[in-house]
Design a protein around this nucleic acid. Structure first.
Length: 456
RNA sequence: GUCCCCAUCGUCUAGCCCGGUCAGGACACCACCCUUUCACGGUGAGAACCGGGGUUCGAAUCCCCGUGGGGACGCCA
């Protein structure tokens, strides 16, 4: 068995699509599972569309997702260069090889690949023109996911444009030969191209790699596959929104693959251990952002405090609309209070805003509701009076304090909780009131309670 | 239009290869429980084998045909 060598070959178009991410992931997983090599190759033959930052977009996205490449740009390797724009000499060399077999011819300045078989002129109604059809033998594709697929390639096709630039089908095959790619794992949209590729491999006398065409990701709403313009289609969007890369990777792995049991949250090492190509589904999968959000929450909940802090800081740094943090220790306390309650990092600023300013809004609907029940003003006054004697050193101590006050007045904890929360945070959504009190501190809590009482 | 791929709850899927368990899990939705708000969590409900033919004692599972969905038909990648 030759060593497993897989490749991910994006073109720098300025977007890193969620479908590309999954193709990269499946390649990476297969390489890691088999102990093989994961090659990154950039298909930048269309020079006008490429720019430096577009390349970086690819590197950044892969790095963020944790999909490191063993050979490719930045890391090098024995089969480079890894940018197609730097491989013109190799393409010329292979074009000569192909020409030597007599399987090419020139027409209108372009170079065509010649199929083997009887020829006839046919009017193609779909394209509204006369084309030369070839009665070629079917090409057999042994696909690791789809099984045996037969397809008849019935028209010669261009391999070098009239401007001298080789086209995708040709460079793709030449690169896979020279980079000794053993398994081509790519989207099912390439299945129809594969017969062209197989014929080229054969004509060049090269071994045909194993193919594995993975199902496509369909857009959430409406028909068709997910495209760059669809909501949630870009990896960088999740990065910006503070999604955890390991959550996105886990979610993506489950789109078209499963561990064979009911587990869904799987450590990447476990996914690597279990992943295999025959286990990949054959049918397309619809993208579900709700499920991704849920996966993200599960990961967020289990995140160690230090890692969460780092992510929170990073998120705040990238969203300067929220108050700057002066006191690191205080910031940390606030963040840790919020962590177990969040669905995603992007909720963080709104969820914690009132910890960082005295100018927080009061939710009028909540206010109306809270003030309508019992005698909240009296509760507030009692709480304010009890504050100086209360112990703020821990959540439990605060809880004791409020409970003692409630007991004294023959009331329950809840009689104080609702109105105190409203006064201190302006809303009825948030961390435990005891944690809020502790972190805000006696002075701030006292001022907020008094100010609120005075205003109602 | 031609060719290729696919088909289990609304969605992701297990089961299919090696026919025979109330067709299992998760997300979403609903109800209840927990509760110090909001979440988390727990329990429960509703929810699927695309249709038709075969093969068979027996079909989600094997075969064929329809239908539906997706993709490809560029001197784009």
């Amino acid at each position: 068995m030759p060593p497993v060598r897989v490749r991910f070959a994006p073109s720098p178009t300025g977007f890193f699509h969620i479908g590309s991410a999954r193709t990269a992931l499946f390649n990476w997983l297969y390489a890691r599972h088999t102990g093989g090599v994961f090659v990154l190759r950039i298909e930048d033959t269309d020079k006008e569309r490429n720019s430096e930052q577009f390349y970086n977009l690819i590197y950044d996205a892969l790095t963020w997702l944790g999909l490191g490449w063993d050979e490719g740009p930045r890391v090098g390797g024995a089969h480079g260069p890894y940018l197609q724009s730097e491989r013109a000499g190799i393409y010329r060399e292979y074009l000569e090889k192909l020409k030597a077999t007599g399987r090419t011819y020139e027409k209108d300045g372009a170079i065509y690949f010649r199929l083997l078989g009887e020829r006839s002129e046919v009017f193609d109604e779909h394209r509204q023109k006369t084309v030369t059809k070839v009665q070629a033998a079917p090409t057999v594709i042994d696909d690791l996911i789809r099984g045996r697929v037969e397809r008849v390639e019935d028209e010669d096709f261009v391999i070098v444009r009239s401007d001298g630039n080789p086209v995708f089908h040709f460079v793709n095959v030449v690169d896979d030969i020279t980079m000794q790619i053993s398994h081509v794992i790519r989207g099912e949209d390439h299945l129809s191209n594969t017969s062209k590729h197989v014929e080229l491999f054969k004509a060049l006398g090269a071994p045909v790699p194993q193919f594995a065409h993975i199902p496509l990701i369909l857009k959430q709403n409406g028909p068709g596959k997910m495209s760059k313009r669809d909501q949630g289609a870009l990896v960088e969007e999740y990065q910006k929104r503070g999604y955890l890369p390991e959550a996105l990777v886990n979610f993506l792995a489950l789109l078209g693959w499963n561990p064979g049991d009911d587990r869904e949250k799987l450590p990447i090492a476990e996914i690597i251990r279990l992943f295999d190509l025959p286990g990949v589904n054959q049918s397309n999968a619809r993208f579900d952002d709700k499920k991704l959000a849920h996966m993200n929450m599960v990961y967020l909940l289990e995140l160690p405090a230090d890692r969460f802090m780092a992510l929170a800081k990073d998120y705040f740094a990238r969203h300067p609309a929220v108050p700057a943090l002066q006191d690191e220790a205080y910031f940390r306390e606030v963040m840790l209070l919020a962590q177990p309650k969040l669905k995603g990092l992007e909720e963080l600023p709104a969820y914690t805003a009132y910890f960082f300013t005295e100018d927080y809004p009061i939710d009028e609907k909540v206010k109306a509701k809270v003030l309508a029940k019992g005698d909240p003003k009296a509760r507030l006054a009692e709480l304010i009076a009890a504050l100086p004697a209360m112990d703020f050193s821990s959540d439990a101590a605060v809880e004791e304090g409020i409970k003692a006050l409630a007991a004294k007045n023959n009331l329950g904890f809840g009689d104080y909780q609702a109105v105190a929360r409203l006064a201190v945070s302006g809303t009825n959504v948030g961390p435990s009131i005891t944690g809020m009190f502790r972190v805000l501190g006696r002075d701030r809590v006292g001022k907020r309670l008094e100010r609120f009482l005075a205003a109602v």
